[in-house]
Design a protein around this nucleic acid. Structure first.
Length: 293
DNA sequence: CACCACCCCTGGACGC
DNA sequence: TGCGTCCAGGGGTGGT
């Protein structure tokens, strides 16, 4: 399920490989996957690609010149964008390929999303995308600072994990990286967000950056669907300490990892390491010996 | 306003 | 082998 590291992996690959190329043709197989004008023009047919920008889990493709110049992608649960080289450009698209962008050098980008939790939004320009979609999101998880995070968390009584899942609070985190983050910070997912102290937020932001950057370097986490533009799997699932490891021994203390439901999401955590009463204890206290990530 | 349950959708895992 | 059932979950919406 694409979260920030998977989308950033995708953005970097598309930026380096597609920048400056012209879109010569666009095939749209499912019109209802597009919100906003679904014309070939709105999907940037005939335009030169000027770059890719990301906010949270959303990715935008920008065209040089005037409007329309902006297509925003959300990959949902199962979305992928695969870059086909000339050698494979003629092969029939896989099932659930909803749109294809053909480039000026015989390559093509296939947008697939079997579960259709994702989508494509067209906008006149990036400012319009920002106004109508991205302004409603919280700061990007790789850009947020601890004062801002603290300010946002202290305003809500919701469980910490619920608040972090809320893209209007902070953009880019999902179920996987939140469980990994909370374990590494030894914070219980059900702590009321308003109870978090400034020092917890400082540690959380520091740990979050390390975690997300490591995941980007590893090409993201592949559980089932995620692939890079070449169809290769990510490697960061090897670095998961809790997600997908319910019942296994905690890497820090050996107790079996537990699952609970938080905001209708399966949540894996260590009931010993991640204290509900965190904050009553010195933050700089015992640091577990954890694998480097 | 804050929060939560529910729903959308498909493929894979699992049981019989 | 094959079929049925359950489950995964981001985010929008409507209800409490």
């Amino acid at each position: 399920m694409p979260e920030l590291p998977e989308v950033e992996t995708l953005r970097r690959a598309l930026q380096s490989r597609l920048h400056g190329h012209r879109i010569v043709k666009v095939d749209l197989h499912r019109r209802d996957i597009v919100r906003g004008p679904a014309t070939r023009s709105a999907l940037l047919k005939g335009r030169r690609i000027d770059g890719f920008v990301r906010h949270g889990k959303q990715l935008a493709m920008l065209a040089a010149g005037g409007p329309p110049s902006c297509v925003c992608f959300h990959l949902g649960m199962s979305g992928t964008m695969i870059l086909h080289l000339p050698s494979t450009a003629g092969t029939p698209p896989l099932p659930h390929t909803h749109a294809i962008w053909y480039l000026d050098d015989e390559r093509a980008v296939h947008f697939r999303d079997p579960r259709r939790f994702g989508g494509i939004w067209t906008f006149p320009d990036i400012q319009d995308l920002q106004r109508s979609r991205w302004d409603a999101l919280g700061p990007d998880a790789l850009a947020i600072n601890s004062a801002t995070l603290h300010g946002r968390l202290r305003k809500t009584k919701r469980a910490l994990k619920s608040a972090l899942l809320d893209q209007q609070c902070i953009a880019g985190l999902g179920n996987i990286y939140i469980d990994e983050l909370l374990f590494r910070c030894r914070l219980h997912p059900l702590i009321p967000a308003e109870n978090l102290q400034r020092q917890h937020c400082t540690e959380m932001v520091h740990t979050m950056r390390k975690l997300l950057r490591s995941a980007v370097r590893a090409g993201g986490s592949t559980l089932r669907d995620h692939r890079d533009v070449s169809g290769r799997k990510g490697q960061f699932q090897e670095g998961h300490l809790v997600y997908g490891r319910a019942g296994e021994d905690c890497a820090a203390c050996g107790l079996a990892l537990r699952t609970i439901q938080v905001a209708a999401r399966t949540t894996v955590f260590c009931n010993r390491c991640q204290s509900l009463r965190r904050g009553t204890r010195a933050l700089a206290g015992h640091r577990w010996m954890l694998p480097t990530y």
